[in-house]
């Protein structure tokens, strides 16, 4: 599983990455994390606000930090 956090390094982006890592660890999932900070790469996903969470190349959320439940659901393929 490939999890990408899109964001230019704002505090919220780091919090989202931390949260996603915690949840992945709790669910005992093996995931590769990538923090995309380059603006052109972020724009390739056509999000309009950061931080955005991308799981297996699908944008799941943008502009907010989703709740633990939401992230867990996405990680489990929901």
């Amino acid at each position: 599983m490939l999890i990408k956090i899109l964001g230019t390094g704002c505090a919220k982006c780091n919090r989202l990455e931390q949260l996603a890592k915690e949840i992945a660890a709790e669910l005992k999932l093996t995931a590769t994390f990538e923090h995309v900070t380059e603006m052109q790469d972020i724009m390739a996903y056509q999000v309009m606000s950061t931080p955005a969470l991308v799981i297996n190349e699908v944008v799941k959320s943008s502009g907010r930090i989703p709740s633990r439940g939401e992230i867990a659901g996405w990680l489990q393929g929901g």
Partner: peptide
């Protein structure tokens, strides 16, 4: 909602 860190994605969007 707006944060200046999102100014560019928003602008292009």
């Amino acid at each position: 909602p707006f944060c200046s860190c999102s100014a560019v994605p928003l602008f292009i969007g």
